[in-house]
């Protein structure tokens, strides 16, 4: 592992809902390195999704800094953040968020239209093992397959970072493993840095490092001496 790709310093995020202030992040300091797979663990409301959204340029921090390489994301304009997402980040969501009116191949192609150096959509789908499901609409795919289309859609633009919010949260163990395998493959073969949120403690085994969130802070950072293969994970 080399230079840090992400650096967060004293990051806070406060949501205001009416008169109530909700502290989602209470000062996060964090470095992620190129090619690293990091898992964010923690209960609901512990701040992991908020951090991921800020890292992905989907949300703005209240104070503190996040740098992506030399770019200070907290100082970016809306347009710069759009550009950043387009060029550098791939997202995976718990509920896939595929466009229902586009086929698997078209969902992936959609992203290639706006990226600078995309791979072939078919190649991306092949990487997640869906070569023969390309012409199917989301409604014709199982949950695991939909999530793998989402992964293909994320990797097709060769992002430097992939941010995954509960990618297996809606899946059973068997299909979940297939998804994890696809993600690991992307991590090792393409060297994509990954931050993966999960509730599922079993998944921590595949990470380089595991960050446990509690109450808007990182309570513990743990380095895995030995990473498990995705196929070994069971829950």
């Amino acid at each position: 592992m080399t230079a840090p790709i992400f650096v967060a310093e004293a990051l806070t995020k406060v949501y205001r809902s009416g008169d109530v202030e909700i502290w989602a992040l209470r000062g996060i300091d964090l470095e992620l390195f190129e090619g690293e797979m990091a898992v964010f663990l923690g209960p609901s409301g512990s701040g992991k999704s908020t951090l991921l959204n800020i890292m992905g340029g989907l949300d703005q921090a209240s104070s503190g800094k996040v740098r992506f390489r030399d770019t200070d994301l907290t100082a970016c304009t809306e347009n710069q953040l759009t550009r950043y997402r387009r060029d550098h980040v791939g997202f995976i969501f718990q509920f896939y968020n595929l466009i229902p009116s586009l086929t698997a191949w078209e969902n992936v192609s959609l992203v290639t239209e706006i990226s600078r150096n995309p791979m072939n959509p078919g190649e991306a789908l092949e990487m997640v093992g869906l070569k023969d499901r390309m012409t199917h609409f989301p409604a014709q795919l199982s949950g695991g397959e939909q999530q793998r289309v989402a992964i293909a859609r994320a990797i097709v633009k060769r992002p430097e970072v992939m941010l995954c919010d509960e990618p297996t949260g809606a899946l059973d163990s068997k299909t979940g493993v297939l998804v994890l395998e696809a993600l690991s493959r992307v991590n090792t073969e393409l060297g994509t840095t990954m931050a993966l949120i999960t509730h599922n403690a079993a998944i921590r085994q595949i990470a380089h490092r595991v960050f446990s969130f509690h109450d808007g802070r990182i309570a513990e950072a743990h380095v895995n001496e030995r990473r498990a293969k995705a196929s070994e994970v069971v829950w």
Binding site: E78, T82, R83, R86, V89, F91, V111, I114, R153
Partner: peptide
């Protein structure tokens, strides 16, 4: 709304 959010997340600008 959600589709619009998603398109933004993927990297489409507001104008597009």
């Amino acid at each position: 709304r959600e589709v619009i959010g998603l398109l933004k997340a993927i990297g489409f600008g507001p104008t597009a």
